[in-house]
Design a protein around this nucleic acid. Structure first.
Lengths: 150, 150
DNA sequence: CACAATTCAGTTGTGCACAACTCAATCGCG
DNA sequence: CGCGATTGAGTTGTGCACAACTGAATTGTG
């Protein structure tokens, strides 16, 4: 096999990783005012959209496990943005809900997506297209990961 | 502004982040045999391609700073894959070079890109196109990040 | 009902990303 | 030359990602 395929600039994963971190830098600045990190912002997005939900379901929506979410949620709770309480009907489960303060933060977050979109320099159609491709990619990779396990 | 833009499934950054982590899972399995993590693999790619180079330049190619690279390189050195030595002509600079073992690993890494490409389910043209768009995105975000600083 | 298997959240340990910082080497300007 | 500014690597501290694990609650099966 030619070395071509080992060239850094041919690795899609590198471009992906670089783009993801470049987003991180832009978000970091925008979210600083809100007192959120980027992963915390993603959690808040789900809560603003769905309202109260168990940790398990939050993890499904964000593709994150309890090892990542438990400490993150603890920090959000310490900052007064969410409440966590054991479910009455299933004591294994913990429901995560917005506090007043957490719900109120939605107002101030409202302009973040627009500013991010502006930073990309892409129009809405381009963003939609790229998003669709990335979702397709993720799906394929997940399927491949499952095969690896077997 | 409508809530639409705060929906998780509208956030390009989330798709990007998810795809990046999905890649991580697939790489993790493939690279386990080589004893590399994914960021370590990226460093090795650069070294296989460029040969010896200073930490500074490595960081430029990978968009990583010394805070990330220093401990990572220390681990690669501990695993016998690279050597680090202060430059004679500029004592501030540290050159990173492959050991015999590190150079030899290239052979075994040769099939990784093909297996990754297969896992994506994309053909080469699709990958090239996606890569180009992501690079464009990164460039735009970097430019926006610079504006933020000012 | 009993009890093994499963589910859920949380903990521990490792590694990466990045900001903020230190410290030594080098550069550049007067 | 002398000295302040800059550069390069490294350290420290915080937070995220994830594997592997624990322990308690629940479920399913005989």
């Amino acid at each position: 096999m030619s070395d071509t395929y080992l060239r850094l600039d041919r690795q899609i994963c590198f471009s992906l990783n670089a783009a993801s971190r470049a987003f991180g830098s832009v978000y970091r600045v925008l979210l600083k005012d809100l007192g959120l990190t980027y992963p915390q912002y993603l959690v808040m997005l789900v809560l603003w959209e769905d309202g109260e939900l168990p940790v398990k379901r939050l993890g499904e929506r964000l593709r994150l496990d309890s090892g990542t979410l438990s400490p993150l949620l603890k920090r959000l709770e310490a900052n007064g943005l969410v409440r966590r309480e054991r479910s009455a009907r299933d004591e294994r489960s913990v429901n995560v809900a917005l506090t007043e303060e957490g719900a109120a933060l939605k107002e101030r977050a409202a302009e973040v997506p627009r500013r991010i979109a502006a930073a990309t320099g892409f129009d809405l159609a381009e963003i939609d297209d790229l998003r669709a491709r990335l979702n397709q990619l993720t799906e394929a990779l997940d399927a491949a990961a499952l095969l690896q396990d077997a």
